[in-house]
Design a protein around this nucleic acid. Sequence first.
DNA 1: CTGAAAGCGCTTACAG
DNA 2: CTGAAAGCGCTTACAG
Lengths: 334, 334
Amino acid sequence: MALKIKDIAEDAGVSIATVSRVLNNSQPVSKELRERVMSSVNRLGYRPNILARGLRMKRTFVVGIIVPNISNAYFTDIVRAAEDVALEAGYVVTVASSDQDLVRERRYVDVLRNRLVDGALVAVAHRFESDLTPLTGADVPVVLADRRLEGCTDCDSVTVDVRQGAAMAVAHLAQRGYQRIAMISGPLDVSTAADKLDGYKQALSAHGLPVDDSLILMGDYTEESGVRLGRELLQRPDAPQAVLVANNLMTLGFFRVVQEFGLRVPHDIAFVSFDDSAWASLVTPPVTLVDQPTYEVGRAAMELLLDRLEGDEARPSEPKHQVLRPTLIVRGSS
Amino acid sequence: MALKIKDIAEDAGVSIATVSRVLNNSQPVSKELRERVMSSVNRLGYRPNILARGLRMKRTFVVGIIVPNISNAYFTDIVRAAEDVALEAGYVVTVASSDQDLVRERRYVDVLRNRLVDGALVAVAHRFESDLTPLTGADVPVVLADRRLEGCTDCDSVTVDVRQGAAMAVAHLAQRGYQRIAMISGPLDVSTAADKLDGYKQALSAHGLPVDDSLILMGDYTEESGVRLGRELLQRPDAPQAVLVANNLMTLGFFRVVQEFGLRVPHDIAFVSFDDSAWASLVTPPVTLVDQPTYEVGRAAMELLLDRLEGDEARPSEPKHQVLRPTLIVRGSS
DNA sequence: CTGAAAGCGCTTACAG
DNA sequence: CTGAAAGCGCTTACAG
């Protein structure tokens, strides 16, 4: 069996209360007893049972993370950053992928709640219908990362100003002289997709270009939809001159179609994507894109969450909303 | 406060023991009481406190995962698979990246141990010096995924036969008529790198080609080393005709150098990589590579682990070692 | 089949 | 500053 606090108490000749106080620095202990305790702890290699402690303190020192797709490098980076910050602070992280599916998401929200996580960081599947009340209702602090959830007024959030990102991309294309600029959009149930579309429309107007609904195709942020919509768009007799593609995976699919059709980029078709990746600078030509500070999103979100966890729960502060800025990286595809 | 078992017991008019028995199906309960309990549970929405249960049962239903680099799609896939399997079985997963660093790895091994995880799945940083004894010594079952750990005789493992993978790659290049075939190797402290190098040498000999040590460059599985060694190799007056690159990240770096030098592939330089990825089929020309069943590795490893956890701990079975087969995907780079 | 009670390993009022 | 004791919410012998 593993050592317990009683073993240390006996070895050091003190009460278990004293051992606990030394280990947690929770109350003053005389220097002498403190040293006796620490020497026993070190010599015997004692580690407190975190379950017993959690049961008493009603804390698990675990935070949950739910993202739409952990295999997408965009979210992998966010998770990685959040994890780094959490581990540093003595928390452990548990991650799940909702697969952009409300039922799966709901299931994992329940799992987190049943697991008694101290807090959660979530990139929601749906900006209206995602339901985090099993957590928030149980007073578990939740931070929204990357995506807004419309009803969630008491949650902190860290997002990227992708509306401006899309606007920058369109401005860039317009300056290059492209007039017919299409957009392969993400699912509008996701706030980032809605924002990107907004930015696209707004920038078209700002540059005196018409907003043509037939040039707006609705995808779902998957590679498959990039392929499907790419084909649909590029087969048209009146194909556009340029395309804004709303995320990395759809760009992957779109690029395959461009190759499949043997189009020369940017001569036959120009495009701008969202999200930098290992391959975006490697393909021919390299892809112009709106880069998002993914690591920063994860880091900032976890920091907000830890603030809540370490802060005074009795007097919760106002929800904080951090908005980070994207960057346009101009390369050969535009 | 959240509901506790006592609340249900009172509501249903039974003892807490009965509630526990119904919820866990641990002992027979009469149909009538069972129904009373279940109706109370459902009506009130009771969820057992997993900490209290864990404290009693000495189980957390948490499994730990440590991989060298969660941002590498290769490991992301493994983790994703393991996670899917674990969640399905009612376990939750906690993940950490060792960054291929023994100190960090050691730290996370300790974290997992202190967290009282029921089991762990690890892709070790070093085939000799990784130390999992804090876990195995505490009778926590460990499954090695992707990489062997030489001393760990009591651990199950799931690996890929990359020696054969490398041999297939070299055989392919030899058949294509390449004579001077270099290798950008991974760090030999990692079993997969050692195996790949073995397979490379073996296949050269099998095809009557000399093993030239000057054509074997030691990298560390990072993109940076792919760049560095790529430059070193391709600048030589007697540059090789073909190269085998031992993983996806080094290929990324190597490919950048090929572009930087303006080399035509495969005319000026042919190469074969390990690990399929989103971009490998997208670049020009697409990359010939040894594909590994990453999802299968994660799935199989977690299944072995769950077998241990659900099995009879008193009579542990022999360690199991699964070896999966890689596939050669021939594309334009060779 | 059912219940009263012990005990898992901690933390923290409470009393001194 | 220190210790004895209660209690966190469960599971499981033990007795019936």
